[in-house]
């Protein structure tokens, strides 16, 4: 207990953290399997990352360096709040630099800079069950996972192609982990799916409202589901980042004025800033 703030280290009590760590260990042992855990009330609303925050609280140590991103950005409300929350309750160092961080909590993006062995990526997950929208019964989805009956997942992809001519799912694109469990990668764009495959960093997923934790251990095979004649493909952009000129990164559309002016910039703000610091200049860098 910190006498000054009145909080236990990283907000949660030690018993709760131990319970969450047990769930995390189990999740790592069974890659892609959704482990139930006794999710706590957190001082934030559901949907704001209560699952991710609990996972982060359970794994955070005094020497950790924390980075928090929301849609790739370090300076949006959610990211700033969670970073401030842990700076206050755990007194850990915080950063916006992907490379310097040891724990990265994320909502909806995987950083562009390659992750390494000493890092843990913590995802905030709203709906952990990839089969949920096709099969509303939890008893049945558990049964389907247990028996590895994943035909239903392909029904969803079939529907996409039938309606749109291609697999139109662009986020929360289902993946098969280690050749066994099908998993929802949380609402990250499918652009980031390939980064999950054989990733050197540990990936942990926390869903607070749904009370589930799952994991992808380092260097695990993560395969995006597809059809033989409609193979998995990521989004591509027809232009580089307007600020740093980066190619092959995920871009956000930013409106500039009421006349419909807009530009496309890196969604990963840290990646963009580091590139500009290195002297890379995009077409519309003057706007920044």
């Amino acid at each position: 207990m910190n006498a000054e703030t009145g909080y236990n280290f990283a907000y949660l009590d030690e018993g709760t953290k131990r319970m969450i760590r047990r769930a995390i260990l189990k999740a790592i042992a069974i890659p892609g399997y959704q482990v139930p855990f006794a999710s706590r009330e957190m001082p934030m609303p559901y949907g704001w990352g209560t699952g991710g925050v609990q996972v982060t609280a359970a794994i955070l140590g005094r020497s950790d360096v924390l980075k928090v991103i929301d849609q790739g950005s370090d300076d949006t409300t959610n990211a700033v709040s969670i970073r401030a929350f842990f700076a206050r309750t755990a007194d850990v160092a915080v950063t916006t630099r992907t490379r310097e961080a040891t724990v990265i909590q994320t909502r909806h993006r995987i950083p562009e800079a390659p992750l390494h062995e000493a890092q843990v990526l913590v995802y905030q997950v709203p709906i952990p069950e990839p089969l949920r929208f096709l099969e509303p019964r939890e008893t049945e989805t558990r049964q389907l996972h247990a028996l590895a009956e994943y035909g239903l997942m392909h029904v969803k992809l079939y529907e996409d192609i039938a309606r749109h001519g291609h697999i139109a799912t662009t986020y929360a694109y289902p993946v098969e982990v280690a050749g066994r469990y099908v998993m929802d990668p949380s609402p990250t764009p499918k652009f980031d799916n390939p980064k999950m495959d054989d990733c050197p960093a540990l990936q942990l997923f926390g869903a607070g409202r749904e009370k589930r934790i799952y994991a992808v251990p380092p260097h695990t095979r993560v395969r995006s589901l597809d059809f033989e004649d409609h193979p998995f493909r990521v989004q591509t952009f027809d232009r580089p980042c307007a600020l740093c000129g980066a190619d092959g990164v995920y871009l956000d559309e930013v409106l500039l004025d009421d006349a419909g002016g807009r530009m496309f910039v890196c969604s990963d703000t840290d990646h963009c800033e580091e590139r500009r610091a290195d002297g890379h200049v995009g077409m519309e860098a003057a706007h920044a």
Partner: peptide, 16 residues
């Protein structure tokens, strides 16, 4: 089409 195809996909068909 998806209704009819579901059993095929359940049986492992992966060619749209």
């Amino acid at each position: 089409g998806g209704n009819v195809g579901e059993r095929l996909m359940g049986a492992g068909a992966r060619h749209y």
